[in-house]
Write a protein that binds this DNA or RNA. Structure first.
Lengths: 135, 135
DNA sequence: GTTGGTGCAAAATGTTTGCACGGGG
DNA sequence: CCCCGTGCAAACATTTTGCACCAAC
């Protein structure tokens, strides 16, 4: 099901801007609103930054992108077509590693059973230090 | 070791403002810069918000407070004297639950052994839905 | 008396909104 | 042709910075 149909099914229109924002997030893998905006500027006449914000919000409602909070505060979006994953962010070098949700299942299972808490794994970010940066 | 000594040991001065900011964070448990500022206004003539920011940054350097990212984007500080803990944030009702680091040891141990990643547990926040909000 | 810390105001940053025009359906 | 979506500019919220004065030591 392509973007056009996804939008029409909910009464929204397909515009070049919306396609570009989704393309940007898909191509970049991890993109802040500014990252996506910059990517678009490189290959199109330009999309206003406020349209990028509005579009990311819409795409997230549609379930086409998700966001997590990586580098402090800035929301980072990634396409929902990519498999859900946990992010490890290294404070030393800034490197971002992706980990399979299955690997943290022991923790999420514990939270569910012990605390009745249903964790949103796709939104989970673990800060720390990677192998090369550990003191 | 009290705040005065902690500061002097590193060449900083003790001021009423610094004591108040630390008091605010300790009393509130979880406090954004604005929360701390508001708490101080209630019992002292007033501390400028920019001083609150500068002081929180300093106290974090000294290891007297830590911060995590709870409600999207806003940094939330807590006193380092409180035992380190993981935060569970419910998207439904906003409730914040604290979990012992020992409980997530299976995950942090796995990250350390499988990925060489040393997780900062005190900074870890898990978003999801609590028992009463799960659909 | 020195020097670092604070208050104030302005700037920088990131995000949202009101409105009129233009393009998608 | 209608109305949603966009660009633009302004409003907004949050955090940072420059500078003169004041207080800690």
């Amino acid at each position: 099901m392509d973007l056009h149909e996804q939008l029409r099914a909910r009464g929204y229109r397909l515009t070049p801007q919306r396609q570009l924002v989704l393309d940007a997030v898909t191509a970049l893998g991890h993109a802040t609103p500014e990252d996506a905006h910059a990517w678009i500027q490189l290959r199109a006449s330009g999309v206003n930054i406020s349209t990028v914000y509005r579009t990311l919000e819409l795409l997230e409602q549609l379930g086409l992108v998700n966001h997590a909070h990586l580098s402090h505060g800035a929301p980072t979006y990634h396409a929902a077509t990519a498999p859900e994953h946990v992010h490890l962010v290294c404070r030393g070098c800034g490197m971002i590693t992706e980990v399979e949700p299955a690997e943290v299942e022991p923790m999420t299972g514990m939270l569910r059973e012990q605390h009745g808490f249903q964790a949103d794994v796709g939104h989970l970010t673990v800060f720390g230090e990677c192998a090369t940066c550990v003191p």
